[in-house]
Design a protein around this nucleic acid. Sequence first.
DNA 1: GAGCACTGC
Length: 717
Amino acid sequence: MSFYSPKFIRPNVDSCIDTERLNELESEQELARFNGHSELSLDVQRQQLPIFKHRSQMLYALETHRVVVVVGETGSGKSTQLPQYLWESGWTDSKHSICVTEPRRIATINLAKRICDEKSCILGDEVGYAIRFEDCFTPGRTKVKFVTDGLLIRELMQNPLLPQYSVVILDEVHERNTNTDIVIGLLKKIMKKRHDLKLIVCSATVDAEEIKLYFDEGEKNKNSNNLSTCIVSVEGRYYPIEISYLTEPCDNYVKASVTTAMAVHFDQQDNDGDILIFLTGQDEVDEAVSKLIEKATELKSLKKKNFKKLWILALYGSLPVSEQLKVFERTPKSCRKIIVSTNIAETSLTINGIVYVIDSGFMKLKAYDSRLGSESLITVPCSKSSANQRAGRAGRYRSGKAFRLFPETEFQNMKQHTPPEMQRCDLASVVIQLKALGIDNICRFDFLSAPPSKNLVNTLELLHALEALDHNSKLTNPLGFQMAEFPLHPTYSKALINAEKFGCAQEMLSIIAMLQVQHVFITPSGRKIQADKSKLKFTCTEGDHITLLNVYKSFTDKLSKNKKSLANWCQSNFLNFKSLVRASQIREQLRMILRKFKIDMSSSCGDRTEPILRCLCTAFFANAATAHYSGDYRHLKSNVSLKVHPSSVINLFLANVDLPAPKYVIYNDIVQSKTTYLIRDLSVVDCKWLHELVPNYYEFGTDREIRETNDKRLKLS
DNA sequence: GAGCACTGC
């Protein structure tokens, strides 16, 4: 395996390197180091940020235009400074504040905190934030309010014209999350009615022109300058990065990443600096980590003097937080850290001290499968901007190197950008939310990137089947409107609203809340056998939903105990304490929404499970599968072959040859493995229930019977 | 024996 290095790049010139992360600048020292000065006042530090030079230009742009696109590169300081400039120059009053949206909760809180430090004010007073379950602002007093973009959509549902804001700043728009895209579309619409509202869109270079065109479109021929848009660019702070490519493609990037990491470690003995490897999933990360540990042990036995030791760490979302935090610990002088990570290190977490990046060039991406009517994860080559973003992780500390485990020709063949999430996700929540906001004709909604019409048609079909939409594709009253108000996928809210009819409201609340949190069961490294055994205590033959209910019931039985003993109970039962606490928060929020609609939720079915399973059928009927003689399952509607995910409790029964495989199941989630689709969170159901509860969705009978019924229908029409 | 990118309401 050999590399060549065709050129140095400044990766952010051509990419999405825009994710300015304040959390890494949390301590004063770090900010000072970043600025190259150690004992300067916060005021002086503010003035040294690249954006300071553009202060008056920015303010002038906003004065003369309705929309300003700010192209701010890494470290420009735009997320913290822009809101302060506007505040300082009188863009707020007792009735209007500045709203800043972020895609993630952590950034939302940290940015608000940072501005409070710079302005010496109290968090929640003049500067505040709001995220789900956490309001930290004072209406009428708060001048700058940070919110997650998802929460702004909820605010829009309460107050469609956002009268409380004079300026809305959208941050990290280049990430193109569905929520950000929805907010952009809605704001464009709102600004036609609210002529005093201003909008600032923060994005990376390449998108700026597209966004400008989007906002200018349709305005020019009106001969008005009203929605005129202008672009302001701000330089960032970064160091040059040398990019190397493989001379020939490699057939196994996991192995190649290990070899490359070891080669870098040897070649760069005299240099410090940590190594960051990008792979696609947990299995690959674990594989690479164990291989690297092997190599590191070999290295130790060589006993070469002055040779740096290796400290190898895995990083992915389902890792316990305590293990995730290890990547932020300072590397000892005699050591080099190698972090093997999934995409989490590309946007969500920024690690200091990285000088070398090794990039597999692949990522897992959400994809919508219209046959199955659901989204799943697939492994695909990443985009150019993604590869550049990853490379950029090497240049935040000093000049760095990036090793791409593919040839340069392959880079040239990559897509410029990762397609916006809107074009590859399940649209049910998007559609129902837009409908609730009064946008009845979704096809004509002015999306920044319109979703494929096939996905839209599928979604409308599902929403009809769920009875959220009527024959005119309008939200049904009250069901459709109620469903839209839940922070849930419409299938889940349907299950909740239906639960009382089946007399299992209490149970359904717990199940739906549990399905919202991830990683309920944990498997600490090396303790798989004990963890699996512990899971058996909660397992039941009905499937994963009732198993989750059992977990939640056991957890709440212990709720009277103090927090610490509850956490201990979770740990000894291999359960994720944080997830369960969050599930109980979500359960409470859902209960409050149901109460608002005056839907009685007092019923409980006790130890009976059939009412629960029947109720689940009325919501998840589209995700029904039937056992196939080949041993796997077939999606009832499309006949696509499905396998049961190894995490499902159903496996325990499939493994027992004496028991027949459950004939019919419904499921909540699909993941795509290298060979097949795997279904997760499933329950055993009866075919008759589907027939009885959703008679219009499936046709039942033999092929001949179905044909005959269809013929009869045709004659009738 | 199988295996689970990342956010968010």
